[in-house]
Simulated scan of single mutants.
Amino acid sequence: MYFQGQKTLRDVEEAVHKIRASLQPNTTLDTSKELDSLQLLDEAQAGVRMLKAQLGNVSAAYGEIQIRSDGAARGAVQDGCSDVLTKLFRGWRFFGGNLYYFSQERKWWDDAEQFCVSQDSHLTSVSSQAEQEFLSNETKGEDHWIGLTDLGTEGSWRWVDGTEYRADTSRGFWEENQPDNWHQGTGGREDCVEIRPRKLNTWNDANCTQLSRWICKQAHGLAGL
């Protein structure tokens, strides 16, 4: 899949080069056709950038696979590699040995978690400043559910993937005066957490029935290799 992607990239880059050459000042195209060609060129260049990013992501994951495959059974390596590559080509992102999915749809927090579970993952936990920055950058300014909740016991926060919640190291990730357990204008409880990149990359507790995008994390997705 990786080498097929490389070949596709070369083919696309060659096509972009030909289009650019055809739009030199001596072109005989009329204005409307030239504008159409320019638009196609912009779209092709955007496709090249996207494909390069995707291949870079696959390359990073492949390097991790090679490292982790030392001493592992061949069958486990093949199965794990297949799962990783399938997710990457479906739009999952690779970072720090984990796989992440950033939704375009919006769901309640519980429905979002159920979607993640169906993908052998959970709503994401956050364990470091580097991971927080990665998630914030990838959300492109949109609020997203993460896997932090105090459902069941008010004020007792936990990550749904089983990661230990550490109040001391997480304090800097919360928005000022949050969590406050106050659902503005409607009353009710706020037991689920969203990452709000528009607000200095911080967390906010919100009502779990609020519709929002979400982030799944297949934690240590290559650990089984």
Score class of each variant (00 low, 15 high):
Leu135Val: 13
Trp109Lys: 02
Cys116Trp: 00
Glu113Val: 01
His122Ala: 06
Glu105Val: 10
Glu142Cys: 13
Val126Asp: 00
Phe94Thr: 00
Gly97Thr: 05
Ser125Ala: 15
Gln119Asp: 11
Gln114Trp: 10
Leu99Thr: 03
Gln132Phe: 11
Thr124Glu: 01
Gly141Pro: 15
Gly96Phe: 04
Thr124Trp: 02
Ala130Gly: 06
Ser127His: 08
Glu138Lys: 14
Trp109Pro: 08
Lys140Val: 12
Arg106Pro: 03
Glu113Gly: 07
Arg93Phe: 04
Gln132Leu: 13
Gln129Thr: 12
Gln129Glu: 12
Ser128Glu: 08
Gln132Gly: 03
Gln104Pro: 01
Asp110Cys: 08
Cys116Asn: 05
Val117Leu: 10
Val126Met: 06
Trp108Gly: 12
Phe94Leu: 00
His122Gly: 03
Ser118Thr: 07
Gln132Pro: 04
Glu131Ile: 03
Asn137Phe: 09
Cys116Tyr: 03
Gly96Glu: 04
Ser136Ile: 10
Ala112Ser: 14
Gln114Met: 07
Ala130Ser: 14
Asn137Met: 09
Asp110Leu: 15
Trp92Asp: 02
Glu113Ala: 11
Trp92Glu: 07
Thr139Val: 14
Ser103Glu: 05
Phe102Gln: 03
Arg93Ser: 15
Asp120Ile: 01
Asp111Trp: 05
Tyr101Ala: 04
Asp120Cys: 09
Val117Asn: 10
Tyr100Cys: 02
Leu99Cys: 01
Phe115Ala: 09
Glu138Ile: 05
Phe115Thr: 10
Gly96Trp: 02
Tyr101Asn: 09
Gln129Leu: 13
Asn137Ile: 11
Gln114Lys: 12
